[in-house]
Design a protein around this nucleic acid. Sequence first.
DNA 1: ATATAGAAAATGAACGTTCATTCTTTTTTA
DNA 2: TAAAAAAGAATGAACGTTCATTTTCTATAT
Lengths: 154, 154
Amino acid sequence: MAALQKSIDKRNALINATIELVNNDGFHATPMSKIAKMACVSPATIYLYFENKQDLVNKTYIEVKTSYTAYAFATYNETMSVEEGFEVIWKRIADFKLKESANAMFLAQCDNTPMIDEESRQEGIKHLQPLLDLWARGKKEGIIKPLSDYMLYA
Amino acid sequence: MAALQKSIDKRNALINATIELVNNDGFHATPMSKIAKMACVSPATIYLYFENKQDLVNKTYIEVKTSYTAYAFATYNETMSVEEGFEVIWKRIADFKLKESANAMFLAQCDNTPMIDEESRQEGIKHLQPLLDLWARGKKEGIIKPLSDYMLYA
DNA sequence: ATATAGAAAATGAACGTTCATTCTTTTTTA
DNA sequence: TAAAAAAGAATGAACGTTCATTTTCTATAT
């Protein structure tokens, strides 16, 4: 058999510990040793799953961002009108912030600090493509001018 | 004469260095030595003006938040209608983010991370009182229901 | 006005701690 | 049994803060 001995559970535990500890203490104030402890793992073990601390937080970001966008676009499809599309996505985003508040808080921290590498940040933005497309569609249809004022804040 | 020998210029230089460096590198990734260097001061001198690093960033936060709210409410007065009040404040906030982007970026980082002490955070919120009052007034007047959906994001 | 003494301010070096990462050894897996 | 995974201890660098010393300021006495 192949050699995927490394446990996916352990990886997930590390990701989750990272989210919780970064939320509580901030990125630089959370030692690798604390992440290890919360994931019931030795500090050295983290380096079997991630290159280093920066890589750990980058990968965590991508993972959470992916689940965020999946959630946001779950009820949306391209046949909707622009208005309906925005409304549907908007509600899902609000929902996400309520129901997955830890994840949302983590993303907020990532998106408002220099803690994530530029490369991973770009990667995260890619997943928002459907929203940008919808925006472009709205512009092309020349509708919802007043809305754009509010949207500036998204 | 009294002994206010400590220079207000030096204090401002420290505050400004803090804003710029925290914006670029994040709170825990900016050493006191770097702040000192940018403010043309010895590291030890910082401790004549602030108790410690936490106190420095707390005070910086209060200062920026105060200037933010002053800016936001500059064109507002209580005789305005609720709608007009919101619009006027809204525009000033957007303006602030454009014209004082470094300050706005710093506030975003403070408000989305655990870097500021709870006490200073509360102190900062106090300055937003006029906005909360306006909100209460809007509710009492029972108007602008649809707006509240968007406002959730402020 | 000037010189000077005492206090406040400023400094650079030093201290002690913390933390990311690596090294060596042990355990687990196939 | 051999290779991968995991562990805990060790390492070296970085940083916040303090210490001992020097510099600057100011208020008074000449």
